[in-house]
């Protein structure tokens, strides 16, 4: 794309005298199609997720809601819930189970001693994502608003990203034969709706967060609580912030 001096100065002039949103809409307004102007500004958001382990009751509502909202094929998961059992001794013998991703809930498994808890998992929408780095065709990418998405029309189904994701959040869609993953319900959050999993979560364990919004309660949440991300040593820039995450969780 080349820009001559006149075009450059015209664009600069628009940004000087109008707000950036008005500039983006101006061309549409001049064309008489104001309703087609993009009212969702990618540059105004930086999406993340907060997950409060102490609030997860393992009901599986998020898993079901995600599957219903995004037509996730049976046996595959964009989000799932794991149950951890950490015995008192030896505490290295950690048991993890996730029957059907927690979709049908968890049958009670009484243990003597130790501790047991649920950990919801999903795409961490890493800001320095390994899956994006390995894609050979530019089909998976980081958006300006902080999501990791997949271009289904460009994905060749090579599975490289499935192996690269340290959190196991990707799968090959059995019908489309392209990779599929959590979009953080981009079709919803770009219309001021909550993601399906947050909408269905009964305890407010999972919450959508906009790190660029100074009024978002996420800032206090991150400041006040002990926060951890999964596999911090991998420096993925993960944006799923867990509160009360146990050291046993992998």
């Amino acid at each position: 794309m080349s820009t001559n001096r006149r075009e450059f100065l015209t664009e600069c002039g628009k940004y000087l005298f109008l707000t950036s949103a008005a500039t983006a809409a101006l061309d549409f307004v001049i064309d008489g199609k104001a309703e087609a102007a993009p009212n969702y500004m990618m540059t105004d958001h930086w999406w993340a997720m907060t997950i409060d382990i102490e609030k997860c009751i393992g009901c599986g509502n998020c898993v079901r809601a995600c599957a219903e909202e995004n037509n996730v094929p049976v046996g595959f998961f964009r989000t799932w819930v794991e149950r951890y059992y950490v015995p008192d001794f030896p505490s290295t013998k950690v048991e993890v189970d996730s029957p059907n991703g927690g979709k049908d809930g968890f049958p009670d498994q009484p243990h003597t001693g130790g501790k047991s808890f649920f950990v919801p998992k999903m795409c961490n929408h890493c800001s320095d994502s390994p899956c994006v780095q390995v894609c050979p065709v530019g089909a998976t990418f980081e958006t300006p608003d902080g999501l990791v998405l997949v271009d289904e029309k460009y994905c060749i189904g090579c599975r490289y990203c499935v192996q690269a994701c340290p959190y196991g959040c990707r799968y090959i869609h059995p019908e489309k034969n392209t990779v599929d993953k959590c979009t953080l319900c981009y079709h919803r959050i770009s219309k001021q709706l909550e993601p399906a999993c947050c909408e269905a979560c009964p305890t407010g364990c999972r919450k959508l967060a906009d790190l660029k919004d100074p009024k978002d309660p996420v800032h206090e949440f991150l400041r006040v609580n002990s926060i951890q991300v999964l596999k911090p040593h991998m420096a993925t820039g993960a944006k799923a912030y867990y509160r009360g995450l146990d050291g046993a969780v992998r």
Binding site: E69, N70, F141
Partner: peptide, 25 residues
């Protein structure tokens, strides 16, 4: 291609066009 990064910008619209099932509170 390359407007926002190493990807096709129309892919964003493709993802956003997904139908909504949960109406919201």
């Amino acid at each position: 291609f390359g407007r926002y990064g190493h990807f096709r910008p129309a892919a964003l619209e493709d993802v956003r066009a997904h139908p909504i099932h949960f109406a919201g509170r």
